[in-house]
Each structure stands twice: as C-alpha cells, then as structure tokens.
Amino acid sequence: MNLIPNQKSRLNAVLLIVSAAFSTNSFAHSAGATTDANHANANATVLAAVSCFDDGNGEPEGLFTQIKDLSEPEEGLLISIQLYKGLKAISDTDTISGDADYSEGVQLNAGPGVYQMIVNKTDAGARKFDVIWHCMTEDHTHTGTDITLRQFQ
C-alpha cells in the first residue's frame, strides 16, 4: 500500500512553510531572505547560532561572513552583520545597496564553538539580503559549519 493512495505526485514543498523563509539549505553556507518585510520596524533583527567544529578538515580558527543588500538603495537604510563569541565581536556593512557585490567580509577568530550571528539595519524598511558564512581553519580551509536560526524579524 502506498502512502499516497491515488497519485504519484512528487513533493514540491517542505512540510512546514514559513513566511520568514530564511532557507539555510539552498546552498552550502549561504542564505537569503527579507527582513522587516512590513517596512515598519527599524529594530528588526535576525539572530542565528553558527557552530564551528573540526569535520576532519582541521580545527576552526574563526568564522568568516559577508552580507549583500539585494534591495534598491534607500537613503539612510543600510544592512549590517555582526559576529559575537565570548569576549570578541566584529561587524560588517554592505555600504552600497542593490549592486552585485557583497560587503568586504570579516572573520572573527574565536576558535571552535558557537558564534552568534546578528543581522540588522539602520532604519525601518524592508531589506532583501543574502549572507555567506564559513568556519575556517588557520590555513584558510573550510571546516565544519552548522547553523541554527534563533530569531527572524
């Protein structure tokens, strides 16, 4: 007996579909979504926990990240990303909205463990963005990287 009695249609959607749609599984260690989709929350914040570990490629030295603002430019509205672990933090901003380039990229070197990754912006207004994140060894080899989304606004 089949699970689907009368059809063989293929599944095209995940079981639980969320409007936030910060899909962390489209590509390896990159994801995108739209923050403050209602254009009303200057304090909208995205929070994720990124785990860096040795997956056989070496012990992680730190977490690298870049962000790209995919929305059209709006005066006074920029998007930024911060990394935080223990007593260390770093930030990066895409200073030109809507172009093809990511921000310059930053790496926080705090070894293996869990990094907090925060995305926020400077004013109310929807920002469609894309983030890249990779845990890197001392010799710049990609190593174990897992992510869990904590908050999406």
Partner: peptide, 25 residues
C-alpha cells in the same frame, strides 16, 4: 535548534522530506 538533516535515500521509501520548525530549522 536544528539537530538533524535528512540524508536522501530512496532504497526503502520513494518520498521523503525534512520537517521544519516555524523558523525553518
């Protein structure tokens, strides 16, 4: 928060999909 991932395999079952929480984990 996102404890597992499904490894694709159709040896036993033809269809499979991950189950996600409201945040997508």
């Amino acid at each position: 928060g996102s404890p597992i991932r499904k490894v694709q395999n159709k040896d036993l079952f033809e269809l499979e999909e991950e189950i996600r929480d409201p945040l997508g984990n």
